[in-house]
Write a protein that binds this DNA or RNA. Structure first.
Ligand SMILES: [Mn+2]
Ligand SMILES: [Mn+2]
Ligand SMILES: [Zn+2]
Ligand SMILES: [Zn+2]
Lengths: 149, 149
DNA sequence: TCCTTATTGAAAAAGAATTTCAATACCGAA
DNA sequence: TTCGGTATTGAAATTCTTTTTCAATAAGGA
């Protein structure tokens, strides 16, 4: 029952940017914040509908756009495209994604300082950002396939 | 006029996998191999149509699928999705993508050996792969905005 | 050259995302 | 608390992308 502190934070951010706090937005934010899986818009729609049967898919798309503009969510890259989203991690955190079920965990410890400046000077590009993800099979999915584990 | 050696290589690979070498496939492969930019299917279609005005967009999609299955191309991740493709680099090479024009160069030098095994043991995931891209502005696009450079 | 069949492009269909619009819910001002 | 302006909503229509179907064609081995 306890409300995830990020929900309050996100709703405040929306409000601070001139958006109203509506029932639809609250439901969507709650589900996005708590999800441990990368979700497609239509997945999120299905989940949110259980809390608000009148919700429209179009509101999912609109709200995702808004949260994206506020930098609160990110697309998750997978072999077949970037159709899922998750809440954005801190700058130094990246995603490890289960290719079987979409479950994610985060990790940090990458350090591209020297590599990116080396690449920048060699190519003339002004390097401003990076995207890093690890892929693998989560413990639960390993168990299902291997039997006893 | 000289033909890119990769064209021959890709066509051989297609043939080795039971595909016929057709005019459409040759044109598509030539353009993909030579492109320095990440391309959307419809971009590739427009480009290839200049060499083969009868080409159908559906053949672009089909050929991209085949090349993808052979591991010859990869999706390029960008902030708004993964709608573009490029030829795949060697395992240790990654893409630096211009967020303004899509031009790409490659770099290597990342080393996730120890990080990925650390993450694996901490999370229980079987980590098998990673995806890394750098983003920035290429020299040409820098010049256009800044004036003299 | 001939024959088999993989491949093709057009058209239709399916799927995903966006736009339009009238009804409604939010929220600040009385 | 009520009221009123307007941001937000869901349904429907539209647009954009990708896939499927199918008859005609072209690749390439015999
Ligand atoms: Mn990082
Ligand atoms: Mn690497
Ligand atoms: Zn899993
Ligand atoms: Zn991606």
């Amino acid at each position: 029952m306890s409300e995830h502190p990020l929900v309050k934070e996100w709703l405040s951010q929306l409000q601070a940017n001139g958006y109203r706090i509506t029932h639809a937005r609250r439901v969507i934010v709650e589900e996005l914040v708590k999800s441990q899986k990368a979700l497609e818009p239509v997945d999120l729609f299905t989940i949110c509908r259980k809390k608000d049967p009148a919700l429209g898919l179009v509101t999912i798309y609109r709200t995702l756009d808004q949260l994206d503009q506020l930098g609160l969510i990110q697309r998750v890259h997978q072999a077949d495209g970037c159709h899922t989203v998750m809440r954005k991690q801190n700058g130094h955190e990246h995603l490890l994604v289960c290719t079987s079920c979409g479950r994610t965990v985060t990790f940090c410890g990458d350090n591209f300082e020297s590599l990116s400046s080396k690449v920048a000077s060699e190519t003339g590009f002004a390097v401003s950002d990076h995207m890093l993800q690890f892929f693998g099979i989560c413990p639960e999915c390993q168990g299902q396939k291997d039997g006893a584990n």
